[in-house]
Simulated assay, not measured.
Amino acid sequence: MVSDALLRDAKSVLRAEVRLGRRARSVSEREAATAGLTENLIALVRRRAPALVGCYLSGSDEPNTRPFLSWAAANGVEVLVPVSRRDGLLDWVQARGGPEQIGLFGISEMVGEVVGPSVFQSVELLLIPAAAVDLSGMRMGWGRGYFDRALESLREHPPVFAVVYDDELLDSVPAESHDIPVNGVVTPSQTREF
């Protein structure tokens, strides 16, 4: 059995590799990835027809969710986006294409009125960030645990899809006992359910 310290080290190494890979992408690679990802996110939402979606607001190196969020707003799809709190939890606001501000950890967040916890409990599809996902559905996040805690807070788990670049869908990722697998992954070239 691999020790917790070795697993944490393996995660740190993989996260660093993913960060380097993301920063090395050219503008044209990012644009092509965004087009494919947006198409796949829209197709997933159309197929599942959720009444309420939870989706992250992408940072500069992450797979770009903004075109999907714009499509959702223009097509009457209700979406919540997270706002980080100092206590390690997430609040959620309606994604309506409004202004953004820099929140904790330098992450851009939408400005808006925080919805009550019962609203987040009614999310029917959750699209979350990841550093990498493996073929069994194990998701490796960025190490702060915000989305893991958000998933744990849900009484009923909606389908959860991690959003990554194609080369971040791996054969395996290091996983600790508290890590929660996802139901699927969306990349620029595919949507895969586990």
Rank of each mutant, 00 (worst) to 15 (best):
V2L: 10
S3M: 04
S3Y: 01
S3K: 08
D4I: 06
L7E: 02
A10R: 11
K11V: 08
S12Q: 14
S12G: 15
V13C: 06
L14D: 02
R15N: 03
R19Q: 08
R19I: 14
L20N: 07
R23G: 14
A24T: 01
V27L: 09
E29Y: 06
E29M: 15
R30F: 04
E31K: 11
T34M: 11
A35G: 11
G36T: 09
A43I: 01
A43M: 06
R47E: 13
R47Q: 15
R48W: 10
P50H: 08
V53H: 04
V53W: 06
G54K: 04
G59C: 05
G59R: 11
S60T: 12
S60D: 15
D61I: 09
D61A: 11
N64S: 14
A72K: 11
A72H: 08
A74L: 09
N75D: 03
G76S: 10
L80S: 04
P82V: 08
P82Y: 10
V83M: 06
V83C: 14
S84L: 14
D87R: 06
D87F: 06
G88D: 05
L89R: 13
L90Q: 04
L90W: 05
W92C: 02
A95W: 12
A95T: 00
R96F: 00
G97V: 00
G97E: 03
G98K: 00
G98S: 04
P99G: 01
E100Y: 01
Q101C: 03
G103Q: 02
S108H: 01
G112M: 09
G116K: 10
V119Y: 02
F120S: 10
F120M: 11
S122F: 07
S122R: 14
L125S: 02
L126D: 03
A132K: 04
A132H: 05
A132C: 08
A132S: 09
V133I: 12
L135I: 07
L135P: 00
S136Y: 08
S136F: 00
S136G: 07
G137V: 01
G137F: 09
M138P: 01
R139V: 00
W142P: 00
G145Y: 03
F147N: 01
F147M: 02
R149D: 13
R149E: 14
R149F: 08
E152H: 13
S153M: 13
L154K: 07
R155N: 12
E156Y: 07
H157P: 00
P158S: 05
V160A: 05
F161A: 02
F161T: 03
V163R: 03
V163D: 11
D166A: 05
D166Q: 10
D167I: 01
D167C: 10
L170D: 07
D171W: 05
S172N: 04
S172Q: 12
A175Y: 00
E176K: 08
S177C: 03
S177E: 14
I180G: 00
G184F: 13
G184P: 13
T187I: 04
P188E: 10
Q190A: 15
F194A: 13
